[in-house]
Design a protein around this nucleic acid. Sequence first.
DNA 1: CTATTAGCTGACTGATGGTCACCTGCCAAG
DNA 2: CTTGGCAGGTGACCATCAGTCAGCTAATAG
Lengths: 217, 217
Amino acid sequence: MSEQRRARAPEAKEDRRRQLCDAARAALDVGTPYADVTMAEVSRRAGLAKGTSYLYFPSKEALFLEVLTGDLSGWFDTLAARAAALPAGAAHLGFAEALADTLLERPRMLRLLGLLHVVIEANLDVETACAFKTRLGEHLLRADAAIGPSLPGLGEGDVARLLLRTHALIVGLGPMSTPPPAVAAALADPARAWLRVDFRTELVEAVAGWLRGWRAG
Amino acid sequence: MSEQRRARAPEAKEDRRRQLCDAARAALDVGTPYADVTMAEVSRRAGLAKGTSYLYFPSKEALFLEVLTGDLSGWFDTLAARAAALPAGAAHLGFAEALADTLLERPRMLRLLGLLHVVIEANLDVETACAFKTRLGEHLLRADAAIGPSLPGLGEGDVARLLLRTHALIVGLGPMSTPPPAVAAALADPARAWLRVDFRTELVEAVAGWLRGWRAG
DNA sequence: CTATTAGCTGACTGATGGTCACCTGCCAAG
DNA sequence: CTTGGCAGGTGACCATCAGTCAGCTAATAG
């Protein structure tokens, strides 16, 4: 099947993992629903046999969790950078908008976040699941330290808590704002327009609302 | 297989649907993950053959959406009743708490809400999906009319919007606050305690925060 | 009593995540 | 240079499950 050399060195094995992640990303980016992305397809894209994939990831879920982890890392970095560049005057609203915009730039990540708890975590060994949570925790703490000072009125740990809460909101908001095309078409009916959810508007309002509340309470 | 008479009258057919819903509820309430609840099992519980179930529901997802719909109806009613009984002084906090408490009384509904967009909607014909959304919309509007007056500072439509937003939050918060037992055990480690999410605390704070923000903004 | 039909059935299909007995390229020892 | 050992790789195979359908049967109409 493959024309490639065998992966013997640890670095070559890392390459295999990357290949598989890239293939998984590519398969998702076509727009195929997660459930319809098969391991056979991902393996084919990676130029490997299906069995080989299972030498590098114990399950489909573990593979896609790795993809999500990578996406999240990039997102946290970007978010911190944008937050650092916020105009001092309108930091709260600006932060909420930066949050929404950086998320919207990562549709694949949004999709995976929606799947995280329901699908991905359902078939994951405890160790992998905990490793992920720990990494997420580190990201949150680092974001807290990096972003907190830019947001007047928020103390230490508040940004981490805000982001954790936002995480929960996103998980629901993502799928709600992007229904299957056919349903979206049916919702175009003006009478049902108010049931449509615009991700950016809703997220900005929600987060800004929390920030206002934080200042007020 | 069945000892029952055949369902000829429309009312008898309604009974069959109810039987299947009851069986589905019972199967979920044992604690089995949604993915592990098979149609064979549900059918067996209902005293029917698997094929028969498909005479009454076009898919597994349609069946569980019906279960969710029933649960939601009851919840909206309870919420409206509790909201009507709120002490005038602390209506906002009281409402947030009523929201959290009524949800916590319905663990099955919470689980299904978490599955709603990711799993259930993925395999639903457009008509059923739209019918559900429409019903949800009606509930929201009725809740808005019933609850809005109890919450000072909120105008018409605000409660509906608040509930829709809360809906998104719940979808993420539910699974986040109830990880698989093994993961929960691993998170008992005090060092990772802050990654634990307490549903009630988090929801109350989030909703109360929004309400504060609403008043402030 | 019989013909008709609508309800019911469960063996069957197709698809997919995951496994495993069997190869085979690669390196190291001789 | 040859060769033995083995880790890397493979794809046929397995189990499972949602969903189908050809055939069966209870119940009613006539």
